[in-house]
Design a protein around this nucleic acid. Structure first.
Length: 136
DNA sequence: GCCAACGTTGGC
DNA sequence: GCCAACGTTGGC
């Protein structure tokens, strides 16, 4: 069971819009590292939903509803999407500043590889985020 | 709006 | 195959 984190700019596709849609395909990934992470996602795995630029915080949890398939928005075979559905909004959003301030999260891809838009999250990191969010 | 970090492109 | 130039992302 792996954990993931996806980034979205809220003015482009916000958590609220995601909840309203009930499901979305995660398109627009045009980076090989991010693409490889999409391909590694398995149905049912949990995904942190992060708002970049505005908010700059983890706002909710999503779940992989369908494993990767050809990106319907491009003819280029290199690119894929996955389907995601919302699970729940976090009790408290976890801002990047809180993540950076927590020593246990110093190695998170979010901190180290800030430009990667789809990234793996370790179980340990996941648990710390849940704690900071007031969950569990 | 600025700028650092990083990925990609293209000339050699 | 190297590396400089360029474009994009994303935090501040």
């Amino acid at each position: 069971m792996a954990y993931w984190l996806v980034k979205s700019e809220p003015f482009k596709y916000s958590w609220d819009q995601f909840v309203k849609d009930k499901k979305t395909f995660w398109d627009g990934v045009r980076n090989y590292a991010a693409r490889n992470n999409l391909k590694a996602m398995k149905k049912g795995e949990q995904v942190l939903y992060y708002h970049s630029n505005e908010g700059v915080e983890v706002v909710g949890i999503a779940e992989v509803a369908k494993e990767f398939y050809q990106d319907p928005t491009t003819a280029e075979e290199a690119w894929v999407v996955v389907d995601l559905k919302p699970v729940k909004k976090l009790k408290r959003s976890v801002p990047l500043t809180a993540i950076k301030a927590d020593k246990r999260l110093a190695d998170m891809a979010l901190v180290k590889l800030s430009r990667l838009s789809v990234q793996p999250v370790t179980e340990h990191e996941w648990n710390v985020i849940m704690e900071l969010a007031g969950e569990q």
